[in-house]
Each structure stands twice: as C-alpha cells, then as structure tokens.
C-alpha cells in the first residue's frame, strides 16, 4: 500500500469532518451517527463476507459482544469507558476467532456457515437475555456522566467525529487488505478454495484472520452503539436486525469493495428516512423496502451502487470516444 492508495480516503473523511460545522440539528446528527455505526458494523462484515466470500448471518454475535463488553465493564467493574471500548473490540475479535475456528475447521461453507453463525448469535442472545450479570431482559443502563475522559460528550458532533475516525481507520485497513498478500489470498479463498490451497494458501489461517478482524471491527461498532445510546439489551445487541444491516449495506453499496459498506449504509438509511417521511411512521415499512432492495440488488445490480456508477461512467466514456 502506498500513500496514493489512501488519498481518496483522506479526502473523503476530511470533507465529511466538516459536516457537524454546518449541521447542528440533533435529529440530523443522530441519524448520521447511527448511520456511521451501521457502516462500521457493515465494514466488519465486508472483510469476511465481501473479500472472503464467507457469508455470516450472525454478525450480531460480534456487535452484541462489543456492546455488552463496553457497557458491563464500566457498569459492573468500573473500568474506564475508553479502555472498555478497546477491550470490547478485542472481545469481538476473540469471539470471531472462536466461531471461525469451530466452523471453518469443520469445513462449514456457504449456507451452513450462514446457519451456524445465525445459531451462535441466537445462543448469545438467549444467554444475555437470561443471565443476571447482563441485567437479563431489563438490559444494562450506562450512567449519564458527561465528561470526555468518560467517553460522553456535550455535543453530538464529537461523537460524529469519533465514529467518522473509526470508519476512516477501517477504510484504510480495508485498502491495506486489498493491496496485501493477505487480501490476495483471502480473495483467492473466496473465488476457489481448492485452487488457493494448491497455490500454497493456508486457507484456514486466512479465513480465521478475516473473521477475527471482522469480529473486532463489528464489535467496535457495538461498543460505539452502547456508548452513544447508553443502553443495551439482548434484542438490540444480539438481535437479528444488526446482522441484517451488516449484510445489506455492503451488498447494496458494493460487495468486497473498500467504500461499499459506507456507501450502502448511507444509501439505505437515507432511503429509510425518505420512506418514513413518505409513509408516515408505519413500523417495518423501511425494512420492508430494505428486503425488496436486497432482492433487487442481487437480481439487477450484483456489484452494488459502486458497480452501477462504474458501469455508467464507462458507458459515458465509451460514448465520448465514439
């Protein structure tokens, strides 16, 4: 990876960093922070699903682990939230490695990998919902104590910047993956596992690396969620909603691309807001549109929004040459 590879990322993040200067409405900032959290979770999914071709239907397992770790470490053990945040990401990595080790070593692929990840997330949800340590069905409330050293801020803009910085860091990480041996091997595993093995790729190690990174990134999104909303319960943290969000954004944006998850998350949640404006506050109407969009994306735009943009740019270029 060279400096030139990350120039577009730096430009984009710098431009976005000015948003809170111009927009100060809380509802808009709320929407933006939430969208960035989803984008981060989706970036995690994209490392494993987009680059590695291993479709997890249970990324809630990582998101929830991050959210609960961040909340419980400070509420129950009094650990500083910033440190709790770091531990949360590491915990997500550990859960990722464990789930990956069990399922990849057993040779689970395709639908079976999707099923087993779904089941792991459900087991964690049931446990978190039942255990006393996690607050059971009542969930965990993080005490309001607005101090920067406590990871709580007066302005929502600060949170926006932190979320943006994390998304930017993962953009760089993803660009590195794209330009590295690890990435080349990961993509080779996605395209053809037997051929990758024959070329000396330790496929188990590569997949484990991907799911561990993926778990850490999605868990970081969970930590951020807990810290922003100051509340976590089992159906938020380990609910299927976040697994679905994490799958949708990269597919709609552009599977296995650096910017896909961010583009997808922004597009989906922008659309969701528009739907809500148009249809009023009918519950489920936005997700209904998401579901239809997923089918449509697979059917008509397998390379997502970025793919469509690239194709139309190519078509325009060709028209100009003609």
């Amino acid at each position: 990876m060279t400096f030139r590879d990350i120039v577009p990322i730096i430009v984009l993040i710098t431009l976005l960093a000015f948003v809170p200067v111009f927009i100060t409405a809380n509802t808009v900032l709320n929407f933006l922070v939430f969208t960035l959290i989803i984008a981060l979770a989706a970036q995690g999914w994209n490392i494993l699903g987009g680059f590695g071709g291993q479709f997890s239907f249970g990324h809630a397992a990582f998101f929830g682990t991050g959210a609960y770790a961040a909340a419980l470490l400070q509420v129950r053990l009094g650990i500083n939230p910033w440190i709790a945040f770091a531990i949360g990401a590491v915990a997500g990595a550990a859960v990722g490695w464990a789930i990956g080790y069990l399922s990849f070593r057993s040779g689970l692929r395709g639908s079976y990998f999707a099923l087993v990840t779904l089941a792991f997330a459900e087991v964690l949800r049931i446990l978190a919902n039942a255990a006393a340590f996690t607050g059971g069905a009542a969930g965990v409330l993080i005490k309001l104590d607005v101090r920067p050293e406590n990871f709580q801020f007066e302005s929502r803009g600060a949170f926006f910047w932190i979320a943006l910085a994390l998304v930017g860091a993962v953009l760089v990480l993803t660009r590195w993956i794209e330009r590295s041996r690890f990435g080349a091997q990961l993509v080779a595993v996605r395209e053809n596992e037997a051929a990758a093995k024959a070329l000396g790729v330790d496929t188990l190690r590569v997949k484990l690396g991907a799911i561990t990174l993926s778990g850490a990134v999605t868990a970081a999104a969970g930590c951020l969620y807990a810290q922003y909303f100051l509340y976590v319960d089992a159906s938020i943290a380990y609910g299927t909603w976040i697994s679905v969000e994490a799958i949708l954004a990269p597919i709609v944006g552009g599977l296995g691309t650096v910017f896909g998850p961010l583009v997808g998350a922004v597009a989906l949640h922008g659309l969701s807001e528009i739907t809500k404006l148009a249809a009023g506050s009918v519950p489920g109407i936005d997700l209904m549109v998401f579901g239809g969009l997923l089918v449509a994306a697979v059917a008509f735009a397998p390379e997502g929004i970025l793919g469509l943009l690239r194709r139309s740019a190519q078509a325009k270029g060709a028209a100009r040459h003609a």
Binding site: Q185, V187, E191, N192, A195, A196, L199, G200
Partner: peptide
Amino acid sequence: VQPFAGLSVLENIAVG
C-alpha cells in the same frame, strides 16, 4: 481448470 473467475489473469497468477 479452477480459475479464480472473478479476478484478472494477472491477479490469478499473482496469488501463486
């Protein structure tokens, strides 16, 4: 033959 179908010829060889 087991090509990495989604990659270019050069990228295929580069994996090796």
